[in-house]
Simulated assay, not measured.
Amino acid sequence: MSEVEEAKQAEEMRLQRIAGLADSLKNEKQRLTCDETQSLVNVLESGDCSKFKMQFRECVIDKGDKDKCQHEFLLYAMCTMKQESELSMLLNPVLNTETLQCSEDIKVLIEESLGFITEAINKYGLENIALAFNGGKDCTVLLHLLHMTLQRLNLHNTNVITVNIETEEVFPELNNFIAQSADLYRLTIVKKNGKIKDALFELKADMPHLSAVLMGTRSTDPYSASLRSFTPCDPGWPSLMRVSPILSWSYKHVWCFIREMNVPYCTLYNEGYTSLGNIHNTQRNPALLCEDGTTYKPAYCLTDGAKERAGRTK
């Protein structure tokens, strides 16, 4: 497929998502009148951000409706077309666990990964397992796979211990996505700062009962080629089992799963980022730069997984 054809396909899919969000906006009956809703939908579909914001203020903000005001960022972001995944998650908080629509190779990977997670739960007990979650695409896949596992095991409404390690200054969009994911997936977020090793020691000291950590590591990640799905931490590290259920997944597999399962993901991936570090060592991937020289394709348009970290300086 040529670059032009890929761009056309991406544009068609974007318009489909916008149409879906417009339908969601039409259902906001408790927040907007029918006339206000239709008027906003019309502007949303036209893509006129300035007009949308002005009109939203007229029908919501100026009325002093605090409940509606809380949704200003959500509705305005709809019009900017840069936060479709986040908005979809907030407007339609239904987590899909059905794999009928998935391609056969993704179904095989899903079953394999669910098996590893189930094995970890049976071996260590869910209360003794933490999930490492930094908002990136890989651990987002892992988070959803964990949710699918819990549903299969009838462990509904389970509050999962989740550790978020901030090593350096992170993107605000990542923090927003982490907070939204915590609400959606019922996570207990334990924040730790500093180097990963020190953070894990602190976590183990705070929760000595922890035996394992679920990680979204893939074999193509730095220093991960020799890992196995169950690998103890190295000597000198906390006594924890690293469980990596998606170790065999490729970059393409990750995005096929996210899109086929309609999994919410961080909005930065819609802006040309393919691997997220911190704000100092992460740039948009040059392989996704469009012909106009200014805009970037979404992360899922990257066809060469070997270029996944092309936007990373570290």
Rank of each mutant, 00 (worst) to 15 (best):
L150S: 01
L247H: 03
L302N: 10
E5A: 14
Y124N: 10
Q83E: 12
R312L: 09
A306P: 10
T220E: 00
C233A: 08
A205N: 06
L203R: 01
Q30H: 09
F56P: 00
D105A: 14
L40Y: 01
N27H: 11
L44R: 06
V170Q: 10
K252S: 12
M148Q: 00
T99Y: 07
L288Y: 08
T33E: 02
A22N: 01
E104Q: 14
T267W: 05
I178P: 02
G272H: 03
P286W: 09
G20W: 06
I189G: 03
P222A: 05
E6H: 08
S226E: 09
Q70T: 10
M261A: 11
A225S: 15
F257I: 14
I121A: 05
E168D: 14
W249R: 02
C59D: 06
D65I: 12
I165Y: 02
T80S: 14
Y185E: 04
S39Q: 00
T313H: 07
F257P: 03
K252N: 11
E3R: 09
V190L: 00
D206K: 06
G135C: 09
L210T: 08
G115K: 08
I121S: 03
Y269V: 11
R218I: 12
F52K: 01
K26P: 05
K53C: 13
A120W: 09
T149M: 03
I129G: 02
C290W: 06
G216K: 01
N157K: 07
L247F: 02
E5G: 12
F201R: 05
W237A: 09
V94A: 09
G272D: 08
A77L: 12
E260N: 06
E11R: 07
P264L: 04
E12P: 01
T140D: 03
V4C: 06
K137L: 14
A212T: 13
G311K: 00
H156S: 09
T231R: 01
L200A: 04
W255G: 10
N27R: 11
V41E: 01
L155H: 07
L146S: 03
F230I: 07
C49A: 10
N154M: 12
C290Y: 07
W237F: 09
D105R: 15
Q30A: 15
W237M: 14
E98N: 15
S39H: 04
Q101Y: 07
L91H: 06
G277Y: 13
L21A: 07
E291Q: 11
R14C: 06
C49R: 05
C233W: 03
V243Q: 01
T294G: 04
A287L: 11
V60P: 00
G64F: 13
R228A: 13
C256L: 14
V108T: 10
L91F: 13
H253N: 15
I161F: 12
S219G: 02
R31C: 07
V108M: 05
A182S: 15
